[in-house]
Simulated assay, not measured.
Amino acid sequence: MAIPTMAEFIDRFPELEVHSLGQLEQALAAAGRRCPESVWADLQFDGAGFYAAHLIASRVREVGAQVGQPVQSAGSGLLSTHYGQQFDELSQCLPCTSGFSI
């Protein structure tokens, strides 16, 4: 699998197309680092997409808070956005790779 291309990302998350190309590219690059294929395997495409969308949504929330707009949050960290919640749920499907055995 692979991380989504820009076109695939926009197709999946059209509501985020209003953001700059640079912001989208940075979010996808960060998502690629966060979701290595060696760990995520067949879930990498979905995981990277949700993580990139979460990063963008989080940034929008931060900017809104800085300019004094009321900010509602469902939680903190990944749980603060719907995309992060989806990423978190998907990450729970990953096999345990801690390297420890009992």
Rank of each mutant, 00 (worst) to 15 (best):
A7C: 00
Q92I: 00
Q26W: 03
A74L: 11
V67N: 05
F9E: 01
P4A: 04
E17W: 00
D42A: 10
T97N: 12
F100M: 14
P4S: 01
R33E: 09
P4G: 02
L94W: 03
D42C: 03
L24E: 01
G49A: 07
R33F: 08
I102C: 10
G64A: 13
G49C: 06
Q86S: 14
V39W: 07
S73F: 02
L24S: 05
S20K: 05
S101Y: 05
A53C: 08
E8S: 12
Q86P: 00
Q86I: 00
S98H: 05
V71Q: 10
S58Q: 09
L55H: 02
Q92D: 11
F50W: 13
R34F: 06
A41I: 02
I56V: 13
E17Q: 13
R59E: 15
G75D: 06
F50H: 07
A52S: 08
F45A: 08
L79D: 14
S76G: 09
G47T: 00
A30T: 10
H19P: 01
G77L: 04
V18L: 09
F100E: 09
D11E: 13
G77M: 04
I102N: 12
P95Y: 03
A41P: 00
R33M: 13
F100L: 14
E89L: 15
A27T: 02
D42M: 15
R59P: 00
G22R: 08
R61H: 11
V60F: 06
P36W: 06
H82V: 11
H82E: 15
G32T: 00
P4V: 00
D46W: 12
G75W: 02
D42L: 15
Q72Y: 11
D46H: 08
G84S: 05
Q72K: 08
V71Y: 03
L78I: 03
P14R: 04
Y83M: 02
R59A: 12
S38F: 11
G22N: 07
P36E: 12
A48M: 03
E37I: 07
R12M: 08
Q69F: 07
E37V: 14
G84Y: 00
G22M: 07
